[in-house]
Design a protein around this nucleic acid. Sequence first.
DNA 1: TAGCTTGTTCGATGTTTCACGAACATCGAA
DNA 2: TTCGATGTTCGTGAAACATCGAACAAGCTA
Lengths: 109, 109
Amino acid sequence: MGEIALTGVMAALGDPIRVGLVRVLADGRERGWGELQAPVAKSTLSHHLRVLRDAGLTRTRQEGTRCFVILRRQELQARFPGLLQAVLAAAEDEDVGHQVSVKDAAQPA
Amino acid sequence: MGEIALTGVMAALGDPIRVGLVRVLADGRERGWGELQAPVAKSTLSHHLRVLRDAGLTRTRQEGTRCFVILRRQELQARFPGLLQAVLAAAEDEDVGHQVSVKDAAQPA
DNA sequence: TAGCTTGTTCGATGTTTCACGAACATCGAA
DNA sequence: TTCGATGTTCGTGAAACATCGAACAAGCTA
């Protein structure tokens, strides 16, 4: 299940919203669906989150009626050394996915 | 014109054939269209080559009726440090784009 | 000039992706 | 049990994508 295919990952990262999602999750913290703020309908957000999960970029945990996502940093790093950093750096630089953010929730500053 | 956008690059690399093309070009050598061997019609190959060019991954040079492609390694490295290596390494590992190759042509060995 | 080679462009087609709203399933709370 | 919150799934439509074959344009070559 640790299947993470290159083209799948690349394709998943080919969409600004998903890159934004990855950026938001880049701090390694687990986030609840509800915290994720993106300019799309919830069904669409669900879709993007599913694409990320299917591509192996994230992992999902369900707790009661709520879901949580987390970036699979370690696995990613193991399989594609340096890729995540490169993507994140470039995304910062171009401000790709800036439209995605986290709702203030236990934001420690 | 040096515009190389992250999502464009990622999307371009989301197709096995194009990854194969990049692998073949990875040695930094310039190649003629005709040398490129891929299991698609020539119009399709033309299309993929255009996508790569538009994404900023390659550069094309025309000489008479013949065309040559070359990977923009340096620019890529400058804009996305480490990304190309990561992708190439993963592609080798998974053997993505193995269906693409170079016809023996002035192959010095 | 005629013909061959090389690559591009042009539909046509089928698949996939992105997006939305609506309906549905679940869980916890009142 | 009834309600509200949270996600998922479904049906749909528009746009993008991958492919192909055919037609076309441009250079060499005979």
